[in-house]
Design a protein around this nucleic acid. Sequence first.
DNA 1: CGTTATCTTGACGTACATCAAATGTCGTGG
DNA 2: CCACGACATTTGATGTACGTCAAGATAACG
Lengths: 234, 234
Amino acid sequence: MAGKIDPCGACDARPNSVCSAIEDTDLARLAAAATSTRIEAGRSFINEGDPADSFFNMTGGTATLYKLLPDGRRQITGFARAGDFLGLAVSSTYAFSAEAIDTVRVCRFPRRKMMELLDDFPAMERRLLARASNELVAAQEQMLLLGRKTAKERVASFLLAQYSRTRKCAHDASPIDLPMTRSDIGDYLGLTIETVSRTFTRLRKDAVIELPSTDSVIITDHDQLLEMAEGSSS
Amino acid sequence: MAGKIDPCGACDARPNSVCSAIEDTDLARLAAAATSTRIEAGRSFINEGDPADSFFNMTGGTATLYKLLPDGRRQITGFARAGDFLGLAVSSTYAFSAEAIDTVRVCRFPRRKMMELLDDFPAMERRLLARASNELVAAQEQMLLLGRKTAKERVASFLLAQYSRTRKCAHDASPIDLPMTRSDIGDYLGLTIETVSRTFTRLRKDAVIELPSTDSVIITDHDQLLEMAEGSSS
DNA sequence: CGTTATCTTGACGTACATCAAATGTCGTGG
DNA sequence: CCACGACATTTGATGTACGTCAAGATAACG
């Protein structure tokens, strides 16, 4: 529980989150249902298979969402950031795990209270549906990537997605922040760290990107990267 | 438009579809919004990139949902059957294509009328949200399959999914119907037809499945198939 | 300024793709 | 009922993109 007087009103993430469906006058209801929590880098806050008794709204930081196979193979299904809503599930247990990459802030909603909120604020439910629809589209795009794209196409697609997540206008050459490790990128793209690394340097040698540091990228040839991502160019 | 008097009340698919959220007394509203259509095998009825002006509710048959790359590579993101709802998208264009495998029946809802229905029947919206959540979970499972599983694990997972889609109780040894071709299965699992075929015969030689015909399978060792699907066994 | 984790680069192996041919299946018409 | 052609599936031989193993190079950190 945030000690603040009006935590939801002051929330940076509200404009991009489902919470913006709730009017200022009803913010107290929202704030009463939520508990703001801070999660240190490396800690997981959702575990696949655990009882799904909470929903989460990310308000800061970046988290990996992933599934594991018994032998430890990992598939990252997405990176969650401020505004993202987690835990949507009909099942009584979580279908995935979530782990903080850097220090993460979330609002936690007990399942029951969240349901009550949805009953009272249908606009919020519609927001959730819109969000789920978008995620579904993204998931289908990722299936195409994982099932049919080459390593080069995967990395190119990934970089473009990271790019367009923040930048609105194309042809912006400022560096893109990559808070995740190569291992995370590999597990997201269905590749190994070695292949991710090799592909990065290949793109650099092709003069499509620059790598000012290990955790940032500059796209120098946006058009060619776009062609690469869909296999139009070699 | 169905010529029947009460098409929705007589609909076989209603119990498993979002339409069941609408009470019998309001069925006329539902029926007025929908147009029932028949689609021949092989014809596509949703095309990626086209204006998304209709929603579809499958009432019969099986359809492939897929995305294409410019050079023709295809990723099937799912197989839609009676009760499935298609076209959920915030975007103004479809993000995927849909093609009938056998003869398909759908109810088509114009976007605007569908929105009005959702405004008036919040229970339907909640059903859609639940459905989207489930699809999201399935999509994450498929990402794990595409990104991290071997060919054998993929085929085993696929067969188990086909199995549990119809059968409720385990240890039912009746044949599973496979309306899709090897090519469809390959494009769904991120494999080639040859690899799918080879893996089928490998599973048959391992005495885990039987192949009474090319479009049906019998699971003879459910437990071992389950182990295979997650890589617990070799 | 060593210590440790992450990233890069190289040499080699392999699971699956590709290419090619044989076999099976099914509808059509003689 | 059988012959035929078109197409799907199976099976085999070979290639390759990416994985695995191993060693340095960088960067993070006390």
